[in-house]
Amino acid sequence: MRVNGLDIAYDDEGSGPPVVLVHGHPFDRSLWRPQVERLSGVYRFIVPDLRGYGETKPVSGRAGAMPDTTPLGVFADDLVALLDRLGLERVVLGGLSMGGQIVMEVHRAHRERVGALILADTFPEAETPAGREARRAAAERVLREGMGPYADEVLDRMITPRNVRELPEVAEHVLRMMRGTPPEGAAAALRGRAERPDYLGSLARVAVPALVVVGAEDEYTPVEVARRLHAVIPGSTLAVVDGAGHLPNLERPEAFTGVVERFLAEVFREAGGATGSGPGMPDQGIR
């Protein structure tokens, strides 16, 4: 679908209340396949490839040059424009890692579009000076070397070393997504994340149901980060997935999906059903 000057690739599966899931870096929409396959009989899932990832190519600028930086606000605006094109006023919005930061940005800038939040393995604060330099250096590296060396290096931090050995199909899926990411898109997003704002203030004003999920062995966003998110977001639910690292939805898909399934059931039970109203959903709510 043509949105904000680019063709966004996305899956639209199932029927019922809409749930939008946002992948992280450096992945694509296939990240969410276990959740979509299990829950699309009850919910409508809209799962896009972000700008510069998967089948959604980065938009070139003057003289055909690729953008140097894609801020989180650009990703957020793409999502809102996609919702507009699909005629969706308000949705459950979930994201993992960078996807969670994009979800936080949508909530900050367009909170009227968010009926509930799912934040998985994600970090709410602004980047540190050292982190900014590391992201900029990683951007230069992937442009210089391609995604292969980067993917090989970070695999056993994306999923636990044990799961690399014991879940070879998951490891191969993760490697395939990382290696298949266009380096220009990855580099632009890395630079954008280096300049991200602090979301703790806007998260403290969340007035919709929120679920915080984290892998118990996540090295990138450890459990204490999820606990901090949970403490900041009023009325939020925290779930820790044992035996998983940064990608619990792939490493322990049954446990992760079960957590999400129970959360969504509670959201819509309180809302009085898929089309009703309730504490977390205004009358125009999630449809």
Rank of each mutant, 00 (worst) to 15 (best):
L6H: 03
D7W: 00
D7G: 04
Y10M: 07
D12V: 05
D12F: 00
P18V: 15
V19W: 01
H23W: 12
P26W: 02
F27G: 02
R29H: 12
L31S: 02
L39T: 04
L39C: 08
I46M: 11
L50D: 10
K57W: 00
A63R: 01
G64F: 08
T70N: 08
G73S: 14
G73P: 04
L79A: 06
L79V: 01
V80K: 05
L86M: 14
L86F: 02
G87Q: 09
L88S: 11
G95A: 12
S97Q: 08
G99F: 05
V106N: 11
V106I: 09
R111W: 07
V114Q: 03
A116P: 10
A120L: 14
A126G: 13
T128W: 05
A130C: 07
R132H: 11
A139M: 12
R144C: 14
A151G: 11
E153M: 15
V154I: 15
D156I: 01
A171W: 09
E172I: 10
L175I: 12
R176D: 15
R179Y: 02
A187S: 06
G192S: 09
A194W: 06
D198Q: 05
D198A: 09
S202N: 04
L203V: 03
A210D: 05
G215R: 02
D218S: 11
D218G: 10
R228W: 00
P234V: 04
T237D: 13
V241S: 02
V241F: 00
D242Y: 00
G245Y: 00
N249R: 02
P253I: 11
E254T: 03
T257C: 08
G258A: 03
V260T: 07
L264E: 01
F268Q: 03
E270D: 12
G272F: 03
Q284L: 14
